[in-house]
């Protein structure tokens, strides 16, 4: 059961509550920003960084009906189904959990930044300014997802089972999805979210472009997006294809023992042949 988030950009009001909730949850220091570092709205900071795990992007675009629109999308780790970063990491500091989160263990990391290079979405960030730097990125609030049991009482009052369930539900969802009040961020099982996304498109084909971003991109991601404009206009990479990147690497890696046998046999064969030739030549003399 792999969980994900459905981001419906048509519901997003760009309030950035999720962006701040993320900083609060992860206790991230603020960035000293300049006046709107990017044109097209209020986007700030300009990009993801080791201090900014998630970012609402502001896009002044023309929508599919030809009208001007101001569209807010979101960038954070996509938590790929088959993550490039996990495939890349040479010490296993990154891993994909069963719940869908791609998590990072800083006690293993050596700081090689192959994960940064390999990420199709430009997500992981490095603490460049530190002398002992780590990689930072959205954790899918992995620790929240694991916890969240309700206390026995709140404000001196015992909680009933319904309240406890609600407490658990709100405390275990990722902080950004808890902060989102319009339903633009919907947390749930990825398969169910895909059904929901398809339903929304089917029910309201005028509102959406017929594309669930993340369903197939680079092998699929846990985070899924709906939009009323082409994702290209929102700055999403459009050329990733449907094949997961790690599948290329896996093919190469799986070849290792075969190469060991093949090259060994070939070398042995040649060697043996050359030696035989030499012997024959010697005998012939």
């Amino acid at each position: 059961m792999s969980r994900g988030v459905l981001v419906d950009t048509t519901l997003c009001t760009g309030c950035r509550g999720c962006q701040v909730a993320c900083k609060q949850q992860n206790k991230l220091p603020p960035e000293e920003t300049t006046f709107f570092a990017k044109a097209g709205g209020y986007q700030n900071p300009a990009d993801l960084s080791a201090r900014t795990y998630s970012l609402v992007t502001f896009n002044e675009v023309e929508n599919k009906n030809g009208h001007f629109d101001w569209v807010f999308a979101r960038r954070q780790c996509m938590h790929c189904e088959e993550p490039s970063c996990v495939s890349a990491c040479l010490v296993g500091a990154l891993s994909k959990t069963e719940s869908g989160a791609v998590v990072y263990d800083e006690t293993k990391c050596i700081g090689c930044r192959y994960c940064l290079l390999s990420c199709p979405f430009g997500v992981p960030s490095f603490e460049w300014e530190k002398t002992v730097p780590f990689v930072r990125k959205c954790t899918f609030c992995f620790t929240r997802q694991a916890g969240g049991d309700a206390p026995a009482t709140v404000n001196g009052k015992a909680l009933d089972s319904e309240q406890r369930a609600r407490h658990k539900e709100t405390q275990t969802k990722p902080a950004c999805t808890k902060a989102c009040h319009t339903g633009a961020l919907m947390f749930g099982e990825r398969e169910e979210l895909l059904v929901e996304a398809r339903n929304r498109i089917r029910k309201n084909p005028k509102r959406y472009v017929n594309h669930i971003y993340g369903e197939k991109e680079a092998g699929g991601t846990s985070w899924l997006y709906l939009a009323g404009v082409s994702f290209k206009k929102l700055g999403f990479p459009m050329h990733l294809g449907e094949r997961s990147f790690p599948s290329y690497a896996k093919a190469a890696k799986d070849g290792v023992p075969h190469v060991m046998l093949g090259v060994g046999a070939m070398l042995g064969g040649f060697y043996w042949y050359n030696q035989r030739c030499a012997e024959v030549a010697k005998k012939g003399e």
């Binding site: 996990v86 495939s87 890349a88 990491c89 040479l90 010490v91 296993g92 293993k108 990391c109 050596i110 700081g111 090689c112 930044r113 192959y114 490095f126 603490e127 002992v132 730097p133 780590f134 790690p246 690497a249 896996k250 190469a252 890696k253 290792v256």
Partner: peptide, 29 residues
């Protein structure tokens, strides 16, 4: 040079005892 390049040089030995399954860089190491 890799020790200069990586963020945490003294951890360059980590791959000796940390064995991920799919990493090509691990193979290189």
């Amino acid at each position: 040079s890799l020790m200069v390049d990586i963020g945490i040089p003294w951890r360059i030995v980590n791959p000796i005892w940390m064995w991920p399954e799919h990493s090509l860089l691990f193979e290189v190491a």
